[in-house]
Design a protein around this nucleic acid. Sequence first.
RNA 1: GCGGGCGUGGCGGAAUGGUAGACGCCGGGGACUUAAAAUCCCCUGAGCUUAGCUCGUCCGGGUUCGAGUCCCGGCGCCCGCACCA
Length: 839
Amino acid sequence: MTDARFDPSQADGRWQRAWDEAGAFRADSGSTKPKAYVLEMFPYPSGRIHIGHVRNYTMGDVLARYRKMTGHAVLHPMGWDAFGMPAENAAIEQGVHPAGWTHHNIATMKAQLQRLGFALDWSRELATCDPAYYRHEQAMFIDLYHAALVYRRQSAVNWDPVDHTVLANEQVIDGRGWRSGALVERRQLNQWFLKITQFADELLGGLETLDKWPDKVRLMQENWIGKSQGLQFHFTGSNFGGEIEVYTTRPDTIFGTSFVAVAADHPIAQTAAASDGRAAEFVALCRSEGTSEAVIEAAEKLGHDTGLRVVHPLSGAQLPVYIANFVLMEYGTGAIMAVPGHDQRDFEFATKYALPIPRVIAETAADADQPFAGEAEAGDGVLVNSDWLDGLGVEDAKRAVIQRAQAEGWGEGKTVWRLRDWGVSRQRYWGTPIPFIHCAACGVVPVPKDQLPVTLPEDADFSVPGNPLDRHPTWKHVACPGCDGPAERETDTLDTFVNSSWYFLRFASQPADKPFDRAEVARWLPVDQYIGGVEHAILHLLYARFWTRALAHIGQLDLAEPFASLFTQGMVTHETYRSTGNDPKWLAPEEVDLRGGKATEKATGRPAEIGRVVKMSKSRKNVVDPDDIVARHGADAVRWFMLSDSPPERDLPWSDSGIEGCARFVQRLWRLFTQFAPGATGADPGLARKTHQAIAAVGEDIEALAFNKAVARIYELASAIEKAAPSADRSAAIRAILLLAAPMMPHLAEEGWALIGEQGLIAEAEWPRHDPALLVEDEVTIAVQVRGKLRDTLTVPRGIDRAQLEALALASEKVQRSLDGADIRKVIVVPDRLVNIVA
RNA sequence: GCGGGCGUGGCGGAAUGGUAGACGCCGGGGACUUAAAAUCCCCUGAGCUUAGCUCGUCCGGGUUCGAGUCCCGGCGCCCGCACCA
């Protein structure tokens, strides 16, 4: 007799060692098999693996293992997005060095991943904070500089005037610095930029080739890039010398302009502020909103009348010039023609400051004097109150205005992108040093390639806020590579998104002298399946696409798109619990007793409130640690839970009862395996049919990443096998279910594979084949409806003809009762599906 | 504010425009057991005058023989917004 129970506490580690010793998941570059590059977004080493990581990596793992079983050479690597703010915060708060903190976390998290039995090629592991990694990033950055894809300019940052430090948007809470509490200011700094806008058209066009990306992500990227056709033109000052250049996507509404508005950072606003105290106050107010677009655009519309007046280029009207807090300096020209009747923001602003709201678009010409119903009308219509444009449609009017502006020389049609160049400067320590040197004589000079990497000094001081590189006593003082005179290193480091913009290339090969081997990139790239959270739908994915195209542009790569197929998975959520009483506090799951459908606080015995199911976060204490649950239930139960129930693109609520159910199923399968009878004889055609249907369906479901459906299929097959009497088909079914479950529950499957006497690892076994002839049922159930409502069902042979089906349906007693003698007007027959009798 | 998504039993969800609720969890009943655990079997959308009927996929309209699915208009929740990763 064999063991009655499967014991993951000894089996998991044993099989993990067996895979390791066999090198089962080493990617083989020399293989002639078709390649499959499966990649999950690499984690930031924040401390411990989060259950959300487990979900992400389990999905990728199932696909990687499935691809291996279906005869692919698989590349499934893992690494660490190891630069970032949390390490620096730990240094400030706990007095540890960011490097030590990060490496400690990596060791912890790697061990956690290994306990989950992921089929990863650890020989290709990388960490972006390793100079062996970032030296190549520095070299590529210099190459992009030489290709004029890198430049410096002034750009706004959040400035904390008390701590004298730059803050991330995340560190600005209600307009104040998170540590100092001081009101944040928007301040201009000279910063490094990557010229992503040069590729705007390509990045937009490339989306059309990404047919295996979710439509929603392509749409989000398209909107982010934001190509628009419009008119750029200038207003001439009437009480001041000069012009104000504006851009509009709605030149058709030009006669509806009732004022001109400029951003607080616009030169006009600066000039006004210099001579007018009230204007200066207003500009300061705008700047206190920080740099976050979400905050700026959601704020109440406010403005300040500069007293400046401009002339409308067509009507000749005098228009006031306002400084407005909702105009963005970064988009267009930083100044707008405001048409309150047909733009909601302008409408709110005009209402507040009692400015005219002319109508220039109406449903018909007769509606020219129709009042507005409390909001702007952005829809289609015909031009009214617009002089020579009256009667034209919107698109015709746009063309007409652009044509006239060009003819008269006061403006021109222009394509404008919402996409802005990528600011990569960070005034922080824990990042890739930007490899440039500032020399008073030679200007900005790249560090010679043979002096790379520019490494971070280890003796950094984190005891005061600000950039430790900038105030380091010696690090930044170097000789100029050009003139050998005294010079200073750039002290900004690169945005961590730069690190993650090429790691997928480095996984394909890791030469010491260059970022990647071109032949290996050609062998493995593009990534066949990329999996990660939707939160990366825009920035990371767009930056990685850009970096790839930029490298292709300078001739280092022959690849247009890095990720052929993308999947964005949902989060793992959990119920929240709060104590009751005067001072309610969040309670961790283990502090709450959930028996009897009610929550009780263990410590006090008082009832606890069960809150909403939300994303796991430390602040709400609704986190579960993967290690605890792996220790309790084994890796396979946890993996199975991650795949069950919720569709992978949606959120998955964690529950203790759910994981217990998964652990029960692990044992249920194990009991099935113990019933494998190699010598069993006799056929069971019904079970054979179900087995082959399951083989086909599970394969399709895994390929579609519909893991929850694959899981349901395996449950169904397990039930069918349990109910069946011993036979050759039953033993074949047990062998099949072992293989079907292998990508999802690999430890259990290996143990079962050995148990039924198979040789070798199931991880290296072949995926079962299905017999197409067995997929089709020979009997079908027909729904019989009367007036679209189900009245009866019929079981008939497949392929029965329409007339016969109709006769059978009409013969039904239930149908006759429902018809109650009514005249039949029409009968709809869908062969092998349904009959609908319309009376 | 702008952009994107989602909404089906007590819960997670399934369903090429064609039998709504597969599969799992919770709950209820039973078997086995001295007992418990484990396991197995059955029931489980709501209501009603319960052989059956009516209602039911966020709300309101529409298209269709037929709508969870398609169209229009709402409501609610979630994600992103360029220095969180």
